[in-house]
C-alpha cells in the first residue's frame, strides 16, 4: 500500500521540469559575477535584505523581495539577483532612477533546485552590499505536462 505511491512518484518525477535540475552554474560563477558588479571593490554585508522563503513547494514561481536601506544622502542605483543552482546564475538586474521611491523590488523567480539566492545592492558612491538566502526546493510529487 505505502509502496505504490512511491512508485507513482518515481514514474511521475520522470516528467520534464522547466529548468534542468542537473545543470548548475559552475562553482565560483556567482562569486565572479558579484566581484564584477563590485568592480574590484569591497562587498559588505548589511544595507540590503533579501527575502526568499526557505522552503519552496514549487520552484517555478518563488516570490522574492529585495529591500535596500538607503541612508540620508546615499543613492541606490542597482540591485542584482543571482541564483547559484540554476543553469545560468543571472536572475535580474534592477536599476533605480531618481524618481524611485526607495530601494524595494519584488518579483517571482524560477529555482531549478535547492540552492542559494544572492542579492547585491550598488550605491552611487560605489559601495556594494550583499545578502543571501539558502532555499530548499522540494520535489513536486505529481508532475505532468
Amino acid at each position: 500500500m505505502m509502496v505504490l505511491p512511491r512508485r507513482a512518484f518515481v514514474l511521475m518525477a520522470a516528467a520534464g521540469v522547466v529548468l534542468p535540475a542537473g545543470v548548475r552554474a559552475k562553482p565560483g560563477e556567482v562569486e565572479a559575477l558579484i566581484r564584477a558588479v563590485a568592480g574590484g571593490g569591497v562587498v559588505r554585508a548589511g544595507r540590503v535584505r533579501l527575502a526568499v522563503p526557505e522552503l519552496v513547494e514549487n520552484g517555478n514561481a518563488v516570490g522574492i523581495s529585495v529591500g535596500a536601506e538607503v541612508p540620508a544622502g546615499a543613492v541606490l542605483t542597482d540591485i542584482h539577483v543571482f541564483a547559484d543552482g540554476n543553469p545560468r546564475p543571472g536572475v535580474a538586474h534592477f536599476r533605480f532612477g531618481r524618481l524611485s521611491g526607495g530601494g524595494k523590488v519584488a518579483t517571482r523567480i524560477r529555482l531549478a533546485t535547492s540552492q542559494t539566492v544572492h542579492a547585491v545592492a550598488v550605491f552611487a558612491d560605489g559601495s556594494c552590499w550583499h545578502d543571501s538566502v539558502s532555499v530548499l526546493v522540494t520535489l513536486s510529487a505529481c508532475l505532468d505536462d
Partner: peptide, 9 residues
C-alpha cells in the same frame, strides 16, 4: 525603475 530579466524570471 528598470529591469533586465533572465530566464529565471
Amino acid at each position: 525603475f528598470s529591469a533586465t530579466l533572465h530566464p529565471a524570471i
